[in-house]
Design a protein around this nucleic acid. Sequence first.
DNA 1: AAGCCGCCTTGATCTGCATCAAGCGTTGCG
DNA 2: CGCAACGCTTGATGCAGATCAAGGCGGCTT
Lengths: 245, 245
Amino acid sequence: MIEIKSLPTNCAVRPNEQICSNCGARALSVCGALGDADLARLDGLAERVSLPAGDALTREGDPARYLYNITSGSVRVFKLLADGRRQITGFLFAGDFLGLTAGEAFAFSAEAIEPVTLCRFKRAEYRSLVRESPSLEAALLDRANHELAAAHNQMVLLGRKTAQERIATFLLELPSKDPARPGGENTVRLPMSRSEIADYLGLTIETVSRVLTRLKTQGLLRLASLNEIVVLKPAALRRLAEGDV
Amino acid sequence: MIEIKSLPTNCAVRPNEQICSNCGARALSVCGALGDADLARLDGLAERVSLPAGDALTREGDPARYLYNITSGSVRVFKLLADGRRQITGFLFAGDFLGLTAGEAFAFSAEAIEPVTLCRFKRAEYRSLVRESPSLEAALLDRANHELAAAHNQMVLLGRKTAQERIATFLLELPSKDPARPGGENTVRLPMSRSEIADYLGLTIETVSRVLTRLKTQGLLRLASLNEIVVLKPAALRRLAEGDV
DNA sequence: AAGCCGCCTTGATCTGCATCAAGCGTTGCG
DNA sequence: CGCAACGCTTGATGCAGATCAAGGCGGCTT
């Protein structure tokens, strides 16, 4: 049974989205994509999973059998070169989907950063649902387009921004993706390690650390703890991010 | 009128795709997305345009009124930072679409590299067609997913590959995107300037030039002309591209 | 055919970030 | 409590690629 109204505590709520009681299907339905019948059916296909930090959701090259919807925690999505160099292509948080874009095999790996809860669907069943529900497809297309725009912005960052601009951009954009907000208005939660930030921004851990220290020294931010940063001067940070220095 | 059978000479043909006589609509139809009726309707909406080298198709921030299908030539798609730094996010060739992913406004600029011919649709009309034709949407979703996978690969390149690995990757992948093949089997056509290659790979023109010279010296390739390169040792180049050195 | 212009190559030098190398704080465990 | 492990910071040094600078070459104009 689906209980849309009574959201359990472990369900994340994102802007314009809700996560349903059993799984993340609701997130799609509120895009106007799923009727109640479809929703019930998708819910029936879902399987709840909890993963400890570090565990893999997918590995590059694995057959893409499942589709995932994160309901809590955070996930790193990345690709590796033969010699172990890693590029993190994105972080996922509660409400995000993984595996929508995969073909027969996953083109990326994904691992839990923190303990993660998620719902898992068989892709085959999901695909047949999609074929019958055109408005779901429209919602997915919309999602894919947003991801594509984000990817292009990240290409600008990786190809043309300085280390300081990358960090500033990262600190400004992270909160808008992560619905698990800490207390303060301008407080940024960093569930990921310095090494993961580095691999996301195309830098080294030392450079990440040095730039954060410099921004702190300049009074733009405060390192509340290793995993929490308070942005003291958002406007100045935004100017840095765009290279208006 | 549509004449699917008689393709005029200026129409590009891509693997598994054909461009229709009047416009690029055929490219979508052969994905199984469009019936003859839809095709005729889309054809009716199309407008042929020719652009000289350097002219803009879209500018970042402009309202996204049109959708484009390139029928010949090549296009650079890019984003700019405030101080003029440019990141080229992709090159488009005959058969490629531009503007599918845009929201209300374009998030990127696009300009002709060579003289370009294209077909232009009003996005509003195209959207209503899409709403009525679910299988078209499926084809578009498929396209978006491929672009997304390509964007992730480019993020690996920009974030983690050396200059030599970037150039090698570029030379290996370009021909698979550009249907305008020159004579030889391993000949790569470079319609874009060194400066465009640099802005695509996150390098400078000097580095592009130096790396090409080095690869030539090492006997991996031959610079047939400024805009044509013959790959002499594809296997070795592929090893370089993946960092297996 | 001379001269200019834009694009490319090549060389010299510089620099931002990587690499190498300590040391520090926190956590967990015997 | 001690001490080992791990992740982070900070400092010293190195280097890939950027920047600065000087031709070279082909195409276009007159």
